[in-house]
């Protein structure tokens, strides 16, 4: 299944946060959402997992407007990993993962073999099968994130929506989590802060700037020095990664764009 976002406008507390956004997450591809802080990435994703209602425009799931489906019905197709990390309520790892079955269950129904199957497989997929009875809040940050990802897997979705899933993870856990996503081959819509991670993992990128999608395409087409200067306000050059051949963005960490060599930047921005 695929996601098409058409003319999306989202307002939050009376302010337009996302304006007239168009975006595609193609079947089986990893689609990345990048952009500076406050550019509207999280807001846009929240309309896909129906935490926020669009003020205008549509989110289509393989052609069907999500709002024509009941919340539970659309949650069977779209699973989310928001930035929330839960609170201390004595939940075990298995209980957290089993929450992924919520959209499939009627009131009073207990878990059946299918549910247990999905939960066990999701735990195994993220390498937490042996930890199912641990208390969720006793886990490390990396383990927690993997459990929350397992909860999304247990939802058996056609589309995964992830908001900054690598935040607060050390580099090894970042790599592991992104490798897990690549291995899934589900339609995935993910926002990422790390442009180099986005460049190697995503099949397609959408760049958000001040609530609008300003560039879309393959990472190498999109992540240009000009865009770095214009959208992110930094000087950068793009080279080939010596190990993988992916685009590697080398930033100038000494000065933001525009403070040095103003003539070059003007050319780039123009």
């Amino acid at each position: 299944m695929r996601i098409d976002i058409e003319n999306l406008r989202v307002a939050y507390a009376g302010r337009t946060v996302v304006a007239d956004a168009h975006l595609v997450a193609a079947e089986g591809e990893i689609t990345g959402l990048v952009g500076p802080n406050g550019s509207g990435k999280s807001t846009l994703l929240r309309t896909v997992y129906r935490h926020l209602k669009p003020a205008a425009g549509r989110v289509l799931l393989s052609g069907t407007d999500l709002r024509e489906l009941s919340p539970a019905r659309s949650a069977r197709h779209v699973a989310a990993l928001p930035q929330e990390r839960g609170s201390d309520f004595e939940l075990s790892v298995r209980e957290v993962v089993a929450m992924g079955r919520t959209p499939y269950k009627r009131a009073f129904a207990s878990e059946d073999a299918t549910d247990r199957d999905h939960v066990a497989r999701a735990l195994a997929d993220v390498g937490m099968a042996g930890q199912a009875d641990r208390r969720f809040t006793a886990l490390s940050g990396g383990e927690r994130q993997r459990v929350l990802l397992a909860r999304a897997f247990a939802q058996d979705p056609d589309v995964l929506v992830l908001d900054e899933p690598t935040n607060h993870l050390d580099i090894r856990h970042q790599v592991e989590l992104l490798a897990l996503l690549r291995g899934q081959r589900r339609t995935t819509l993910v926002s990422l802060h790390d442009l180099n991670a986005a460049a190697s993992v995503c099949d397609r990128l959408h760049v958000l700037h001040a609530g609008s999608v300003v560039a879309s395409g393959r990472p190498r087409e999109v992540l240009t020095p000009e865009l770095m200067a214009e959208v992110f306000g930094v000087r950068a050059t793009v080279v080939d990664h010596p190990l993988t051949g992916d685009p590697l963005i080398a930033f100038d960490h000494r000065a933001p764009a525009g403070t040095e060599e103003p003539a070059t930047i003007r050319t780039a921005a123009g």
Binding site: R50, P71, A75, A80, P82, E84, P103, A152
Partner: peptide, 10 residues
């Protein structure tokens, strides 16, 4: 788990 997570669970 949080309002956003709950929304994502339908």
């Amino acid at each position: 788990m949080g309002d956003e997570t709950a929304a994502g669970l339908g």
